[in-house]
């Protein structure tokens, strides 16, 4: 409670952010014309290019490695934030410990950066599997509903 009072401005800020986003969405829904819903109007505008295929494309798997690197740096930042709030952060032994800590994690990042091109797998087969499953589902629906 005593601590929670200090964070009330953060809460107000979060509520303001949510209200602003929802308000913009509602305002655009209100101001939008609701007639002329043909496929030309509802297709996404890509600088004059006509969009081809579904929006659910399959990305290469090594994007996940970038996310893992982000999570690792996130945890490292949390530990260093705890240290930065203290008053003994400049004593000699703590500086050496921080150096070892950062070097271990940077070693992992360097390993990831060095091996990243070898983990490249295009997501093509994922998309193929998805299309096959979708076609199976559609054929099953046609079979069950046709009789």
């Amino acid at each position: 409670m005593r601590l929670f009072i200090d964070f009330v401005p953060v809460l107000i800020w979060a509520v303001l952010a949510v209200v602003m986003v929802v308000g913009m969405l509602v305002a655009s829904w209100v101001l939008r014309p609701h007639v002329l819903q043909n496929s030309e109007k509802t297709s996404s505008y890509e600088c004059g290019e006509e969009p081809i295929g579904p929006a659910r494309i399959s990305y290469p798997y090594n994007y996940l490695v970038y996310t893992i690197l982000f999570v690792v740096v996130d945890v490292m930042g949390a530990f260093l934030w705890l240290l930065a709030a203290s008053s003994f952060r400049l004593s000699e032994i703590v500086v050496w410990q921080v150096l070892v800590f950062v070097l271990i994690i940077m070693g992992g990042m360097g390993f990831a950066m060095k091996n990243m091109p070898e983990t490249f797998l295009s997501g093509q087969e994922t998309l193929t599997l998805y299309r096959k499953a979708k076609a199976e589902q559609a054929s099953k629906e046609i079979e069950s509903g046709g009789h």
Binding site: I68, F79, M109, T119
Partner: peptide
Amino acid sequence: YVQMAALILLVSIVGAIAILK
């Protein structure tokens, strides 16, 4: 403990790369 957490994070990176390879 902090160094052990760093080692666990290192192992997770190396393991992810190794499983993908």
